[in-house]
Design a protein around this nucleic acid. Structure first.
Lengths: 240, 240
DNA sequence: GTACACCGAAACATCCGAGGTCTGTTGCAG
DNA sequence: CTGCAACAGACCTCGGATGTTTCGGTGTAC
């Protein structure tokens, strides 16, 4: 195993074992390099890698620190990973979202505080009558993020956040392509809000399912009719 | 922004734009460094970081290649991230698994091929009557992995794989602590298999829910009675 | 003609030391 | 007590030298 990979594991172990707690500062580069038995260059490679997945946080002129290691921070790194998938696997991500989003919405109907529900309602009102596509998508993202947050499960919230990245682009397409999409989206958002405000988890779950399934259905058709030959097998199976 | 981060973005863009396709070899270090306008050391940091999240694959003596970029490979990197979370957030991960696993099981009941179902059944038979804890957990992991794979959604499959990492430890604890756990696990696995073999998605979903919820319930109690004061708020809410 | 062993080129792995830049702190002047 | 300036510590970047691994070509033995 390369020296750098060993260093990554060593640092990882130092954190997991509790030797380095969240927020702690690592020994300086030269010192840590000597302690792990490698050169500063190789150590820097390891640190950079751990930085990318948000485990470490280097501040020039100060030092290298362990991040808070909160789930949202670490799962944020997944957004980066998800960026590499376009078109052909977006449907798979959306399918997962269709599983998680209704569950999160139902949980939100149970656990959200009255204040948060009020804010959720304000979010709906903030949108003007003829919003730009960008404003609509931004509002949509905030709306779903607040619901995910309201589920009370930070892991679930972060996961949905990550999944929203690639599907956000799909939503933009939708806004540009489908005429009634804007009105339908607002209508469904209102329905979801009403269900949450009424503390009706099952109703909220159903509306969320309808909402995501709508996007999924549209995207499936859009990709099926597109000039992308790589997904020709799947639409055939769905055609029946 | 540090030069290395710029390099990471540049390489990322080269892949997303299609300039570098999966399986392609990157230009040699010196050449790419010159092209991106930085030193080899800095480039190596960027490459190492992209390596950690399985976007690149360097082979000494050969060259650096773009991986297949398949979802399972990239989401595999999440296992690394998840490793940093112990005890206090395991419940959150398990809660997400409780959402995904039943959905995946229901999908498997619909989409799995007859051959795969046969193999799933063989998996259950392979386990001896008084298995070791390690064998039980290994068999359990394989069983759920095959079901997740049978859902037909690689993203869902990889996600469940990642979530199984930290909860696997919980399962080990369970095997060591709870007497009837082994028998109950086998019983529930059989029930899930029967439901899938009978092509009964709703029944399969329900058994999967029962199965995961059992682990979750046990873990919640175990942590609640443990000397971990960080999760004292949540069990109180569940107590009613 | 085929198969095996040897050899050299190419590419990554690792290390080192020097110079630059940023940040937080310290001490002095007002 | 406050504000500014100099200092020290830490990370950033660079370029070169040396070791290690893999691949492909060549030559020889069968």
């Amino acid at each position: 195993m390369p020296v750098t990979d060993v260093a990554i594991d060593k640092i990882k172990d130092m954190i997991i074992s509790g030797e380095l707690a969240p927020g702690d500062r690592l020994p300086k580069e030269a010192e840590l390099a000597q302690r792990l038995g490698l050169s500063r260059s190789s150590l820097r490679e390891a640190v950079k890698a751990l930085c990318l997945i948000r485990v470490l946080d280097v501040r020039q002129g100060d030092g290298t620190y362990v991040t808070s290691l909160e789930p949202n921070l670490l799962l944020d790194a997944m957004t980066f990973v998800v960026d590499f998938h376009r078109d052909d696997t977006v449907l798979d991500f959306l399918a997962v979202r269709r599983i998680l989003e209704p569950a999160a919405t139902a949980l939100a109907a149970l656990h959200m505080s009255d204040d948060d529900i009020t804010e959720l309602g304000q979010l709906l009102g903030e949108l003007e009558d003829s919003p730009t596509v960008e404003a609509l998508v931004a509002n949509d993202l905030q709306f779903h993020r607040k619901i995910a947050d309201g589920s009370g499960n930070p892991v679930l919230c972060s996961l949905l956040d990550s999944l929203s990245g690639p599907t956000a682009r799909a939503r933009i397409w939708r806004g540009l392509t489908q005429e009634g999409a804007v009105a339908k989206t607002r209508e469904q958002h209102s329905a979801i809000y009403d269900a949450i405000a009424a503390r009706e988890p099952e109703l909220a779950r159903s509306w969320a399912t309808v909402h995501v399934a709508g996007v999924e259905q549209w995207l499936r058709n859009a990709l099926g009719t597109a000039d992308d030959p790589t997904t020709d097998a799947e639409p055939a199976a769905e055609a029946s």
